[in-house]
Simulated assay, not measured.
Amino acid sequence: MDRQQLLQALSPYVRRAWHHKVDRMKLAPRIIFDYELLYVEQGELDIRIGEDSLTVYPGDLLLFKPGIEHEFVRSRGPCWMPHIHFDALYYEDYEEVPINFKLRAECSQQELSWLRPDWLGSLLEIPHLIRVQNHAEIHQELMRLIHAYERRDAEFPLLQKSLVLDILYLVIKGLKSAEHGQLSLHQAAMERAVTHIMEHYNGIIRLEDLSKTACLSLYHFSRVFKQTYDVSPHQFQIRYRMERAKELMMYSRLSLSAIAEQVGYSSIYAFSKAFKSACGISPKKYMSTHASMGAPEIHH
Results as ranks from 00 to 15, higher is better:
Val263Gln: 14
Met242Leu: 05
Ala274Asn: 02
Tyr265Phe: 15
Lys226Asn: 08
Ser288Val: 07
Ser288Pro: 06
Gly280Thr: 01
Ser255Gly: 15
Glu247Leu: 11
Ile281Asn: 07
Gln227Ser: 13
Lys273Asn: 01
Pro283Tyr: 01
Ala258Gly: 10
Ser255Leu: 12
Ser232Tyr: 05
Cys279Lys: 10
Arg244Met: 09
Ser232Asn: 03
Ala274His: 00
Ile268Ala: 15
Gln262Trp: 10
Arg244His: 08
Ser257Gln: 15
Tyr286Gly: 00
Gln262Thr: 06
Met249Gly: 00
Ser232Val: 06
Gln237Ala: 12
Ala270Thr: 09
Ser232Phe: 08
Phe275Thr: 04
Glu247Met: 09
Ala278Cys: 09
Asp230Pro: 05
Ser272Cys: 05
Thr228Ala: 15
Ser272Ile: 07
Ala270Trp: 09
Thr228Ser: 14
Lys226Glu: 14
Asp230Trp: 10
Lys285Asp: 12
Phe275Trp: 09
Asp230Gly: 09
Met242Ile: 05
Ala258Val: 11
Lys273Ala: 07
Ala274Ser: 04
Gly264Trp: 01
Ala274Glu: 03
Tyr251Trp: 15
Ile259Trp: 13
Ile238Asn: 02
Tyr229Met: 06
Ser266Tyr: 08
Ala260Ser: 08
Ile268Phe: 13
Ser277Asn: 11
Gln235Arg: 08
Tyr265Glu: 09
Arg244Glu: 00
Glu243Ser: 07
Lys276Gln: 14
Val231Trp: 02
His234Lys: 09
Lys226Ser: 13
Ser277Glu: 14
Lys273Glu: 00
Arg241Ala: 07
Lys284Leu: 04
Lys226Asp: 04
Ser232Glu: 04
Ile281Arg: 11
Ser257Pro: 09
Phe271Asp: 01
Gln227Phe: 14
Ser266Asp: 11
Met250Ser: 13
Tyr251Gly: 01
Tyr286Lys: 03
Pro283Thr: 12
Ala270Ser: 07
Ala270Val: 07
Met287Leu: 13
Gln262His: 14
Arg223Gly: 00
Ala270Gln: 11
Ala274Cys: 10
Tyr240Pro: 02
Ala260His: 01
Met242Asn: 01
Phe225Ser: 03
Arg253Gly: 11
His234Met: 07
Val231Phe: 05
Ser266Met: 10
Arg223Glu: 06
Ile281Cys: 13
Ser288Cys: 06
Val231Lys: 02
Tyr229Lys: 03
Ser255Asn: 11
Gln237Met: 12
Phe271Thr: 01
Phe275Gln: 00
Val263Thr: 00
Tyr286Glu: 04
Lys246Arg: 05
Glu261Phe: 15
Lys273Asp: 00
Ile281Leu: 13
Ala274Thr: 05
